[in-house]
Design a protein around this nucleic acid. Sequence first.
DNA 1: CTCCCGATAT
DNA 2: ATATCAGGAG
Length: 220
Amino acid sequence: MKGAKKRIGGIIKILRKNYSHSRTALQFETPLQILVSTILSAQCTDEKVNEIIPSLFRKYRNAKDFASADKEKLEEEIRSTGFFRNKARSIINASKKIVDDFEGVVPEKMEDLLKLPGVARKTANIVLSSAFRKAEGIAVDTHVRRLAQRLGLSKEKDPDKVERDLMSFVPKKEWLDFNYMLVNHGRKVCQARKPNCPSCVISHLCPSAEDFYPDIKLNP
DNA sequence: CTCCCGATAT
DNA sequence: ATATCAGGAG
């Protein structure tokens, strides 16, 4: 990834200008809520997650509530987000550990968040950045992975390896915002099925633009 | 690598 | 019909 180091500054500068207004699309008020919402958001649109979390958070107000939840009931309440059995188990077991080992409070360190069942680096990074404004890494989800590959920022497929690549040349002060800028750009422009390179503000910095649109004029 | 899994766009 | 959506565990 040699060209990546040269282009990353321009990419970030332009994305920041275009997406500075929008932050996470997940609705939340507490660290526990962003943790649960992020678990629910796996392979599901944030839109569908936002539909069910108001009633969910009215019923379950803290980690102890989730820890003692009736599993079948919780499964039904989150069924529409898919993977509902796995997600219910993760939410309950993670909440139990928060109650047992962290005094009912969502931990603020990557090391501790990774001890929660159902929480890996992507979810931990989202909780750290959204709830605590800390960046111990860069959250790599399906959007970030796809854009990192298209932009020539990483050739890896494993999210943890993509994250390592990004951490090696994305300035640390940008880590906090890098994920949501790429997610927003991925949702609006650089979509999985139909990347809209003609209206992309960083197409001139993207080695994939000509692949998708052979006759494209690069001059944003 | 496979499995988990409903909702939506194409 | 099929791909994709703020992934993680076995």
